[in-house]
Simulated scan of single mutants.
Amino acid sequence: MRDPLSSTIKTIQPSGIRKFFDIVSEMKDAISLGVGEPDFDTPWHIRDEGIYSLEKGRTFYTSNAGLKELKIEIAKYLDRRYGMTYDYNKEIMVTVGGSEAIDIALRAMLDAGDEVIIPQPSYVSYVPCTVLAGGTPVIVELKEENDFRLTAEELEAVITPKTKILIMPFPNNPTGAIMEKADLEAIVQVVKEHDLFVISDEIYSELTYVDKHVSIASFPGMKERTVLINGFSKAYAMTGWRLGYACAPETILKQMLKIHQFAIMCAPTTSQYAAVEAMKNGDEDVAQMREEYNGRRRYVLHRFKEMGLKCFEPFGAFYAFPSIKEFGMNSDEFATKLLNSKKIAVVPGTAFGECGEGFLRISYAYSLDDLKEALGRIEEFVTELRAGMDNK
């Protein structure tokens, strides 16, 4: 029988994030700091609106692009929070999480051989989605000495005549790095000079701990070049509701919508009604959760400092990215030994690109009690490793 599988799909590796999560789920007394999921319940008033929509029998398809009411509230939110103006009817669509938006944006914009610049370490979907869309990933290695920010010089160095799209993954998963206004100004100049388009993944925009998040789409002349992607999973603790959105020029959004129509039809109706409530009345919930994350962030960094584990200060998302280069083992080996020895699951930095070697992603989207226990075990582990190195 001939091979039923696509040659392209066979080249794509499964997500490196889930490996340790699957192991720890079967391990008694283990603590996972590996999954990027808020430990908060979705705020009750948002859940209540979803329940009410079911009670009212709102269980039918919505329009392909999403509920009109939700798109209007998304437009209001973007104006209120970031001073950006979008036409809800022509420039906004609702998707099944931010991940679908990434996929269909790439498929709508790429021809075979078009190059997509992807800064790494970064979220695991960008490379496989680029490959599946027929594009060619071009990796820019973000550097610790630059606080894992993308510089104009790094971007300029990899642009070729085939370059079409730059992915901007900030605030960043896994590093927690952010791009401030001055950083973005330099990038905007390069993007315009080379006539590029941008896919800006801003799913962690509300989880920024210095000043306020700045979107690259807010710069003059950039809205026309940018697909802005966001969603409800991280800021509103709505991961399981599977709801995101994309904002883009009408010419791009029309084509994204065609793919969405044939592959998805529409995002979950119940989730969309709940999201209307989140957009209208969720700002205070977001602020409270952000403050809690910020306290955990400071605690995690303090504990790393106490145990002598080098870690640059992340100002976004809910991740820390400590270096384990001093121990002379690769990230996967370190994470495996930590799990087996101390029953603590973290994600090897290499899950987010080869340049993540020598680092770990540690999520602080967990209770302070879990963080205290987990970091205590990590301190025991690194102390034992150092003692073993001294005795050699």
Rank of each mutant, 00 (worst) to 15 (best):
M179D: 10
S205L: 01
D103V: 05
I102A: 14
E153Y: 09
L196T: 01
A112I: 14
R107V: 07
Y209N: 09
D195K: 06
P119W: 08
M93E: 07
A112Y: 03
I165M: 12
Y204H: 15
M93S: 09
S215F: 15
S125W: 04
T160N: 06
N172S: 02
V116Y: 11
P137W: 02
P174L: 13
V116H: 11
D114L: 07
L106F: 06
M109Q: 07
I104L: 14
G176H: 00
I203M: 14
A112T: 11
P171A: 13
V124E: 03
Q120P: 08
V198H: 06
F219E: 10
H194K: 14
A105K: 02
I178D: 00
I159H: 00
K162G: 01
T85Q: 15
E115K: 11
E185I: 11
E115F: 10
E145K: 14
D183R: 04
V210A: 04
V116P: 12
Y123T: 14
I92E: 02
Y82F: 13
V140C: 02
P161C: 03
Y86K: 12
D114N: 09
D111Q: 04
E206R: 05
A217F: 10
E156P: 00
Y88H: 13
E185P: 02
L166E: 01
L142C: 07
P169N: 11
K164R: 13
K164L: 14
L110Y: 00
P128Q: 07
E185Y: 04
V124A: 04
A152N: 05
Y86F: 14
Y209Q: 13
G176I: 00
E180K: 08
L132F: 04
E180V: 07
L106R: 06
N172H: 01
S125E: 14
N173E: 13
K143A: 04
V198T: 00
E193R: 10
S122W: 08
L106M: 12
V198D: 00
R107K: 14
G176V: 00
A105N: 02
I118Y: 12
S215K: 02
I199G: 00
I117R: 12
D103I: 05
G135Y: 06
E156N: 05
E144I: 03
M84V: 06
P137M: 10
Y86N: 03
M84H: 13
V214W: 08
C129I: 07
S215P: 05
D195T: 00
I118T: 07
I92G: 02
I199L: 10
E100C: 05
D211C: 00
E100W: 11
I199C: 01
A112C: 10
L196G: 05
P161G: 02
